[in-house]
Design a protein around this nucleic acid. Structure first.
Lengths: 155, 155
DNA sequence: CTTGAACCTTACGTTCACGTAAGCTCTCAA
DNA sequence: TTGAGAGCTTACGTGAACGTAAGGTTCAAG
């Protein structure tokens, strides 16, 4: 147990660069688990793992540009991994169960990867286009500057 | 003049994969020009260039994940390019003016490129992370399968 | 010239992803 | 024990990005 539930919602928000409201909202829509199995009314408590999870959520949200609902689907992979780890800590795991969890995690990871690669490819194309346009503009600028003052340099 | 203003808003929407409402909205907030300098009340008309512009807007929106307001800023580059081309078609362009437009286009293109490259780098990191996780899951699966049936193969 | 489909403007409605306020409660250090 | 600061729930508010409906107009085909 590297980290006992020691973070309060405000700490978690600050560490992740977001707000408490957002965390509660994510919990409300099922994107995050119920902050430390607390009894309703008392304070939510989190640990390092929760922080990582939240950061992952924010990263995927910003990079993939998907809705929180779609993100929820995608994040089932993280849940599978978590379940796997917790079951794995005990030694009485049935291999069939273990194998099923692994396969689930694999499939979901593959879906994520495909999405990421598609977007990365699109972004690369965009980058190439922009770079080419920039090149053309540069050449025209040089052209002009040469025509104006055959012996000057930059902007 | 490759393309006279021949597309109606419905055609443009279909070709770009969006809706007429969206196009009107983009015009309303100044993201797109006033559909063919028409007199208010009559139909908007577009050409191939408008289609390209709209597609570029949609591409940047989806890939950069910026607000339409920020996008408007970024797209000033396209406007500079358009202005440049139209002034360039005449031959009486003052070099100073031309140079200024080119510099504007260059600076805005550079801003776009920086944004795109930052996101591309983030996406690459994400892809690497996911690939590594997937690799681990794969190895564990193989491990299990070997332990179960020393001579079988796949999923 | 007459349709009827597509378009026009205006304006209100909607969904998502939170922000904000109110009134109460929990926690922890003094 | 107590007080204040952070947290809790509930609920209404908000901005962005459109959707949708109403009532009138334009345009291309016949």
């Amino acid at each position: 147990m590297t980290a006992a539930q020691t973070l309060r919602i405000g700490d978690l928000a600050r560490l992740a660069g977001t707000t408490a409201r957002t965390i509660r909202y994510y919990e409300e829509i099922g994107l995050l688990p119920d902050g430390g199995a607390r009894m309703a009314g008392s304070h939510r408590l989190y640990d390092e793992a929760d922080l990582e999870r939240l950061r992952e959520v924010m990263r995927l949200k910003s990079l993939l540009g998907v809705s929180l609902d779609e993100l929820k689907e995608l994040l089932a992979a993280e849940d599978a991994r978590a379940a796997l780890r917790s079951e794995l800590s005990r030694d009485d795991v049935e291999p069939d169960r273990r194998r099923a969890l692994l396969i689930e995690a694999r499939d979901l990871l593959e879906r994520q990867l495909e999405l990421v690669r598609l977007r990365a490819a699109d972004l690369d194309r965009l980058e190439a286009d922009l770079a080419e346009r920039l090149g053309r503009v540069h050449r025209k600028l040089v052209e002009i500057d040469v025509a104006r003052q055959p012996a000057v340099a930059e902007t």
